[in-house]
Each structure stands twice: as structure tokens, then as C-alpha cells.
Amino acid sequence: MMNLIRRQLATVLTLVAALAALGTVPSPASAQDGPGIQYQLHNCKMPSTTVRWSDQTGGGAYGQQAIEAAASWDSATPLTMQLVGASPIHIIADQSYWGKTDWAGLTQGAGGGIPSCTSVMGVWQNLPLKIMLNTYFTDDYPANKKQSVFAHEMGHALGIFHQSHPGTTCGGLGLMYYTVAFRYDVCGQFLPQTDDVAAIHYIY
């Protein structure tokens, strides 16, 4: 019986690890905050409302859109997104060629691990979190679409999971809706929306 339980647990952990590699780890829990609020939470957060982030994109179009993405969270929420070049660093923005995956952006913990914390609404343990764009796809994205992916991944690093919006209309759609194909291509979202801002207020 114990061997069966161990095998079942190993299967679950393998599935979670596989989903994490795809940037689709299920949210540990969700939070609702009034009618129409559809944000969900990772239940982990940054150590303070001053979030120190580093641009490792090499500049150019990617660097500019990373800066614009951070500025959008800074202006829409109580957070201060501080661009830094020295430790401590909470978020690293980067881009790299990952080939034909099923993701354009991904958030990982330090060393490529799964981001985690030890308590509900606790601080991320494996900082800095690294947000990455997959240039296989994003090289062809216009500037605002690159920004949409950067800002979405920053939202994950700040503690927000995917929005539980039905994805059938643009009304109420947030930046944290899971697919850029609908979020940006259909609805043109590249800035934090009401639902995203409500999530940050809930967390911090």
C-alpha cells in the first residue's frame, strides 16, 4: 500500500514539474475580491513593495519593452519597480532562443527551479526570479506585444497567477489572461488592467 502511495505521489510531482517547465503551474490557491474580480494568486510575493529588477536583455527592442513593462506596473500600482545593476535583485528580465515550445514567455526561480515560498502569502524563496521571452516567437512581435509578454511574466513574479476570465470577449480581460494570442492579438492588452491592479492591492 505504501509503495502504491509513493508511486502515485511521484507521478503527481512529475506532472507538476512538467507543467512548471511550460510556465503553467496550477495556482496553489485563488482569491476573489468582489463582483467581476477574477484574479488568482500564486500566494507568494516579493519581499517589499520596492521591487529591484535587472535588465539582462542586452538592450535594443527587448530592453526597451522590459523597461516599459516594469514602468506600467510602477505607474498602475503601489509598487516601485526599481531598475538596478547590483544585488539584491528580485527579478531578472531576459530573452533567449528556446525553439518551438508552446510558450512565448516563462517565469522561473533562481537556477531554473520552480518558484516557491514556504507559507501562504510568504516571500518567494528562490530569488531572483527570471522572466524570459522565447525569441523563436517574440522576434516577430511588435513592440507592444513584446511588452505584453514581459509585463505578464512580471505579473507572475509579483505574485499573480492567470486570470480566470472566460476569454470570449475583451470586456474585463486583464493582462494576466494566459494567452497573448487573445490578450494582445484580439484585445490589444499590454498594460495592467483593473483586475491586475486589484490583485496587487490584495497581495501588498
Rank of each mutant, 00 (worst) to 15 (best):
A29P: 05
A157Q: 02
I203K: 08
G109V: 01
D102P: 10
S30H: 08
Q65T: 06
R7W: 08
E153F: 10
C117A: 03
L129G: 01
L191F: 03
S30T: 14
S164H: 09
L9T: 13
D55F: 07
L79Y: 07
Q65V: 00
S27V: 02
H201Q: 15
R7H: 11
N43S: 00
L15W: 13
C44I: 05
L173W: 07
L127H: 00
Y97G: 06
A70N: 01
A157L: 00
A29Y: 10
L129I: 01
A20H: 12
S27Y: 03
G34E: 01
Q32Y: 10
G167M: 02
A71S: 15
T138K: 01
G58W: 07
A104Q: 13
C170M: 03
P28K: 06
D139Q: 14
G58L: 05
T57W: 05
D55L: 12
P78M: 14
P166V: 05
R183A: 10
A18T: 14
G60S: 09
R52P: 14
S72T: 06
N144F: 00
V120N: 09
P192S: 11
A29H: 08
I67N: 09
I203G: 11
T138L: 04
I160N: 00
Q189E: 12
N43R: 05
G109E: 06
I91C: 11
W98A: 13
I67P: 00
L15E: 06
K45P: 01
I89K: 05
L106T: 06
L133W: 10
Y136G: 04
L106G: 08
A70D: 02
S75C: 00
Q189T: 15
I5P: 02
D55T: 09
P142Y: 00
L15C: 12
G58E: 11
S48D: 07
A157C: 00
